[in-house]
Design a protein around this nucleic acid. Structure first.
Lengths: 338, 338
DNA sequence: TTGTAAGCGTTATCAT
DNA sequence: ATGATAACGCTTACAA
């Protein structure tokens, strides 16, 4: 079977305790024994059994990620961020996706606890009161990324969706738009949908632009939602600018606009949300609200590990968004004031 | 501390052995004891400590994924595929990225071994002889996804890059193109670059189209490589159609073509590779070679777990690609024979 | 500086 | 059907 510290101990003529010490660099041994042990380990091709270590130290140096699905580049960046800092701190990352609707969430949590992860990161899954309480009862440090829990009892890191949506809308207003639509947000979604809807509405109101509910088309943040939205606008009332729920939705809009021979941005300005890689790779490149996914993952992981090691509670943080001005919004100079 | 089977044993008036039996559903106990134990576990809020189990069973029910970086939707789909079947088999997935150049590969492997994963999946990292040998020495079942190892000693699942490239080129030929370029492949890349170059060249040769090295622009599969390629073609010789190293590269081409006022596909046909989400979301949607990423992940994981449980060697497999005809290649009917 | 030995939470063998 | 108990590979008092 695999080499153990016993084998090393034998070969180096020391006790297993000493082997353990030098392997962990604890100190308390002569430099010659140190060398003997290291040499023996080397020669035998020793790999430490971390599961044994975990059992006695009651730490796994592992953090668990629960994510709706990993397929979007969106999540990929978050995971990369997490993994990078985990790596720096000597932690491993165990990943599970909880299904689109967050079913499997319970299973995922159970898995994490069974594996005795030191901390849990939950990405983009809204937690209701029951789930929130269950998680707190687990006693495992947990942080939410790009989502919140009912009552906000669990620490989170996310962008201010309300402010971002407001900002996007205001940007459009500043370019002279009066007829501004909102496409693709899910109004049942407390995390992103509702705040963005509110930000959009409040901005229009503040700018004394009359509210036109017909300019709002709800959806599920998808590409297809964008396509359906555009269909809808064509048969109802076409805005001059559109705040979209996501980059995917924005691209759906653009795709359909193309079919209807509506020029973007000349006839229709479009602003996305997320700044996924599609945003800058598409032609014309998409003006969008950038969420710092990588940073979110990295910061979240950092905070979590800090909490694991210091036992301090994690404080929620709002992380800044950024408007990426590209080419799907008509610039003011060319824009006919309505 | 956390609840252990001892606690349950005490409360249910049985031995820990019995608790273990019922928890694992081994059989060999009365249904009343079973109920008592289960009830006790429930009441105490017991979570099994899998690290302890791993220590004695010498199995972790964990498989490790090593991936260059998780950021591309590309990898996200593979990971999702892996995770889905891992979940079905009751396995967890531990993830690490090995850096773009596969530096950190050694560290990643070491981490996997230390954690005593039951199997390893390496994605998109070419393994040289030394690395290949090291991995075999590890004695951990390993499978390669979308890559190979020097000498092909490690089992892999991938698309036939040569055939795919040949197919893409032939498709362009069939549409009447004679001046066909190749953009963005890395000729030092033995996994994807070289076979695709060969497929492209052989196809042209078979069709008796004279070879024009000036139509080949090497790169690194990136968006930027596409942009540079287009710059190059504009100042040298513009083909009528382009086989691209990736969807990203194709989009770079299209982006730059737009700036040069070259119409796609009217003046320049473009075919991508991968069929990432950008491919179908962009306007016009990209004609491209689809690699079945999700399936690759799922199948790879399945084969690996089979191998873990049966101790059989994994057999390498070629998985089919598919040409997705969309709108960046001019159809024959409209295409002026040159 | 080094060794002895008790545990960590399970599983699994061997009795009963 | 159930219970003792010895492992599993490591860490960590406590001794020496």
């Amino acid at each position: 079977m695999a080499i153990t510290i016993k084998d090393i101990a034998k070969r180096a003529n020391v006790s297993t305790a000493t082997v353990s010490r030098v392997i962990n660099g604890i100190g308390g041994y002569g430099s010659d024994t140190r060398n003997r042990v290291l040499a023996a380990a080397q020669e035998l091709g020793y790999y430490k059994n971390e599961t044994a270590t975990s059992l006695v130290t009651n730490k796994t140096k592992t953090i668990g990620i629960i994510i709706p699905n990993v397929s979007t580049s969106f999540y990929g960046n978050i995971v990369t961020g997490i993994e990078d800092v985990a790596y720096d701190f000597g932690y491993s990352v165990i990943l599970t996706h909880a299904g689109v609707e967050g079913n499997r969430l319970f299973d995922s949590l159970k898995l994490m606890v069974n594996r005795r992860v030191d901390g849990i990161i939950i990405v983009s899954i809204y937690l209701n009161k029951e789930q929130q309480q269950m998680i707190r009862k687990l006693g495992v440090p947990t942080i939410l990324l790009s989502t919140i829990s009912e009552g906000n009892r669990l620490p989170y890191i996310k962008v201010d969706d309300y402010a971002a949506s407001y900002h996007a809308t205001q940007y459009l207003v500043n370019q002279g738009h009066q007829k501004i639509g909102l496409a693709g947000v899910n109004q049942n979604d407390q995390v992103a949908g509702q705040p963005r809807l509110a930000g959009y509405r409040d901005c229009l109101e503040k700018n004394q632009i009359l509210r036109d509910e017909a300019l709002i088309f709800f959806g599920d943040f998808s590409f297809d939602a964008g396509k359906r939205a555009m269909d809808y606008y064509m048969t109802h009332e076409l805005p001059t600018a559109l705040v979209c729920a996501s980059d995917d939705t924005a691209l759906g809009i653009i795709s359909m606009a193309h079919q209807y021979k509506i020029l973007v941005p000349e006839q229709l300005s479009v602003i996305g949300y997320d700044d996924t890689s599609v945003a800058w790779m598409t032609t014309p490149p998409l003006t969008t609200i950038a969420q710092p996914f990588y940073e979110m993952g990295a910061l979240g992981c950092k905070r979590l590990i800090e909490s694991v090691t210091t036992n301090q509670e994690i404080r929620s943080e709002i992380i800044p968004f950024e408007l990426m001005e590209r080419q799907t919004v008509l610039q003011r100079s060319n824009n006919p004031k309505s």
